[in-house]
């Protein structure tokens, strides 16, 4: 797992696919699974695109006898069904693995508003701690972020840790993320929410010890 991540990361560094918002340099298992899914799909799509280019190029010659069923049933139905169902199976399997489940994972709250974030986690003394624009999570273990909104729809997204989840007024949504290592990650609002949308960024601090002691100002790592 780790080795693969390193290989992928190295390859990416070479091609310049870096950046602290990149889904292609995942920093946790959820994002890694999805990145793997992407590479599988990219390879498959590349192969299919080439196949289609070849088929179309070959057609440009002289007319030839060809069977109707080969194209409509063989390629159109069978070929596409095989590819699509296997992809769907992989997708469902990965989806199943990254889904939040009721396993007593640490929960933190993310409340979105125009335009900023208020995060709440449990402090060392059991009292909830509120922070603005910096969300604190434990590292290495799964975390559930409970996402709510004050006004319009926003979306909570930390590309290196997991996919996005909308913040919808009147509802609470749950996103599961996990960081492999303590450290700082970047997040943003992904759903258009008006004038301040582009600047609705936040940071994630993953801590080795939980609950974190914020008085030392995150200097623990």
């Amino acid at each position: 797992m780790r080795k693969r991540c390193i290989i992928v990361a190295a390859a990416l560094l070479l091609t310049g696919c870096d950046g602290n918002l990149s889904t292609l340099t995942p920093a946790g298992p959820v994002a890694s699974e999805i990145a793997l899914l992407w590479w599988i799909m990219l390879a498959g799509s590349g192969a299919i695109t080439i196949l289609m280019i070849v088929l179309v190029s070959l057609s440009l010659g002289r007319p030839r006898a060809t069977s109707v069923r080969f194209w409509t049933h063989g390629m159109g139905l069978a070929f596409s069904m095989v590819i699509l169902t296997s992809l769907l199976a992989v997708g469902l399997w990965i989806g199943e693995r990254i889904l939040p489940r009721d396993d007593g994972a640490v929960a933190v709250q993310a409340h979105a508003w125009q335009w900023g974030w208020t995060f709440t986690h449990e402090g060392p003394d059991g009292v909830p701690v509120e922070t603005d624009d910096m969300i604190h999570i434990p590292a290495v273990e799964p975390v559930d972020v409970l996402i709510t909104s004050e006004d319009v729809i926003h979306a909570f997204w930390v590309p290196q840790l997991a996919g996005k989840m909308d913040a919808i007024p009147g509802r609470t949504n749950r996103a599961r993320l996990q960081a492999d290592e303590p450290g700082q990650y970047e997040g943003l609002c992904a759903e258009f929410c008006g004038i301040g949308h582009a600047r609705m960024r936040f940071s994630v601090q993953a801590h080795a010890t939980w609950p974190p002691d914020l008085t030392s100002d995150g200097a623990e790592e």
Partner: peptide
């Protein structure tokens, strides 16, 4: 995902048409 199937049928029927024609 399934909706890609009828689309594929059409695309391949067009390519097949090009194969059998000139």
């Amino acid at each position: 995902v399934l909706v890609a199937v009828p689309t594929a049928v059409q695309v391949f029927a067009w390519i097949g048409t090009m194969w059998k024609g000139h």
